[in-house]
Design a protein around this nucleic acid. Structure first.
Lengths: 202, 202
DNA sequence: CGTGAAATTGAGCTCCCTCAATCTGAGTGG
DNA sequence: CCACTCAGATTGAGGGAGCTCAATTTCACG
């Protein structure tokens, strides 16, 4: 396990198609996971927060299948696959842990897919914020006051919307008194309302 | 590995919330993966074809997170987790294989999510058919002549559409000469056109 | 300040959803 | 053999959510 590495905003951590030589654990900052479509557009798969893993999809073919690039200064650790396999040989607990992490990623991805299928625009944005809030809280950060490291366009491409629609949804939440929005700084005033809307209570 | 088991249409193979005691390999027939929303609706995650695995998401928490029920008479094998862990202890190849399978499931789920985010109704239906065709072909079945074991409503709930829209999309494809549709029997006449539309060439 | 990118806001239009009627086909009983 | 039934699928009409295009406005950075 190699640690203490650092990346500047905009720099790419892994590229689609590269052989998967390592997993990465994000320590600080945030990153964007995306792939480039045939038309040249970006398909945003999600955002990586501190404490989360990068590169798991690579197990499928031995190559990464999407790009991950830093949105903020990104601190991370690198876990070489060779090293990981050696450890898996000896440590049954780690075996279970890596299976758990993969299962979690899978479950989460499916839940996100369901969200897309069921919710309308406002529901998706609400869910996005509620999810972000939840993940920040798990890392001991404030679930109600945070900074969006990604643009409205990134959020839109992640949620299958346009950036205008994302902006309007935020505007609605603001008007309803659920949020305070100042550019990319968010204050959540009514987490319950967001969570409800984001869970398909709509 | 216990084999030769059989299930009747409509019967449930695993239930959400049950402890994950085993993985399942489908041998014949097909199944629907879904979960029940708070409102009582079905959220269809996908369909399981012969040769595919059921239960992988269970690694996340040790419990299954969605229901899987047979659409047709379903032949399957049961792989107890205890047994699997014993084998993982001794067989490095199997360790890599299970990681590969989980990675594949994750990658596929993310690709599906992207599809939902990018495509319009016809694109989603085209992608659904192209994907089905591809998966059948991998199992040595005909990629151009097949039977849909799921209802239009199931397809719709899977794609985040209404059943009417699915029906209309199929109608369009038929009118354009891309498909022959007779109830649930599909003949693909222009696989290229479907694949193109389903890949976001739209 | 000044400049350019990002975000907000507005107006019109399109695609899909909603609601409703019709059609098809498989299973049942007379 | 045929009428009946009922679920699933198709088709039609109308309305609304979100996309497109375009004009400001706000914000970050020099």
């Amino acid at each position: 396990m190699q640690r203490g590495r650092q990346l500047r905003p905009g720099v790419t951590l892994v590229r689609a198609g590269e052989p998967m030589a390592a997993l990465f654990v994000v320590r600080s900052g945030s990153a964007k996971r995306y792939s480039v479509t045939l038309g040249g557009g970006e398909q945003v798969h999600g955002f990586v927060l501190p404490g989360e893993l990068v590169g798991l999809e690579g197990f499928a073919s031995g190559r990464y299948t999407c790009e991950v690039s830093a949105l903020e200064p990104l601190g991370y650790c690198r876990v070489p696959i060779r090293k990981l396999e050696q450890l898996l040989e000896r440590l049954p607990g780690l075996r279970r842990e890596i299976l758990r992490l993969l299962g979690q990623a899978l479950d989460e991805s499916q839940r996100l897919r369901g969200e897309l299928a069921l919710s309308d625009a406002r529901g998706r944005v609400a869910h996005f914020l509620a999810d972000l809030s939840h993940r920040l809280a798990r890392r001991g950060l404030s679930p109600t006051e945070f900074h969006l490291s990604m643009s409205r366009a990134d959020i839109a491409r992640h949620l299958g919307l346009t950036l205008e629609t994302v902006s309007r949804a935020l505007g609605t939440f603001k008007r309803e008194g659920w949020l305070r929005v100042r550019a990319r700084d968010i204050s959540v005033l009514r987490p319950d309302a967001l969570a409800a809307l984001g869970s398909g209570i709509a």
